[in-house]
């Protein structure tokens, strides 16, 4: 069984969108990037891990990244959490911390269980992701076009840190490319 990820071909953008996110992290002083990895985030994770000014933190479960970001903010550092949509459910109760304490919180979520999905087990949480985030008062932005990634992530970062809110950017499976198992 092959588990490669097909790259999207429908954008005229010369750079990969992951580099755009990385640029926003640098410009917005994101010093800690935590993640449960997803294939869609692998390029961004590599960029962060090879940057000595960014602390990359691998998590055992996504909710750790919520508490980690809160602790970092208490100490004056900005963090971002990277995950796949399947991790959103793991975060729900921990997002109480963000809401109750008005913590700025930024998460970038690569979507599964939608556009071209092969694996039926990904569909319930993928389809439930926007509602689960909204239920915990996290603001949700979605991006499906590579050329919109930079602006959307920059706006989400400003919104989170300037208005003390949880903000999630959903990176559509259309943007990432559906994971290919069989062809």
């Amino acid at each position: 069984m092959k588990t490669t990820v097909n790259q999207p071909t429908n954008h005229s953008h010369s750079r990969h969108w992951a580099s755009d996110i990385y640029d926003v992290f640098k410009a917005q002083d994101i010093g800690i990037v935590s993640y449960v990895p997803d294939a869609g985030h692998s390029k961004l994770i590599n960029l962060c891990e090879s940057d000595p000014e960014i602390r990359a933190v691998t998590l055992t479960t996504e909710e750790e990244g919520v508490a980690l970001a809160a602790g970092a903010y208490l100490g004056g550092k900005r963090a971002a959490l990277l995950m796949q949509s399947s991790g959103v459910g793991n975060c729900i109760n921990m997002l109480s911390l963000v809401r109750t304490c008005s913590f700025p919180f930024l998460t970038l979520i690569t979507m599964r269980g939608e556009w071209g999905e092969f694996n039926p087990w990904q569909v319930p949480m993928g389809q439930g992701t926007p509602a689960a985030l909204a239920a915990m008062d996290v603001l949700v932005e979605r991006v499906a076009e590579a050329r919109e990634v930079r602006g959307t992530v920059l706006a989400a970062t400003k919104l989170a840190f300037n208005s003390y809110r949880g903000v999630a950017v959903l990176l559509s499976q259309q943007l990432i490319g559906a994971k290919q198992f069989l062809e």
Binding site: I32, R55, E64, L68, A69, G71, Y73, L74, A79
Partner: peptide, 13 residues
């Protein structure tokens, strides 16, 4: 379940 890892964030910052 978040106390120790919140402490990690604070310690790194």
């Amino acid at each position: 379940g978040g106390a120790a890892v919140l402490g990690l964030g604070l310690a790194l910052a």
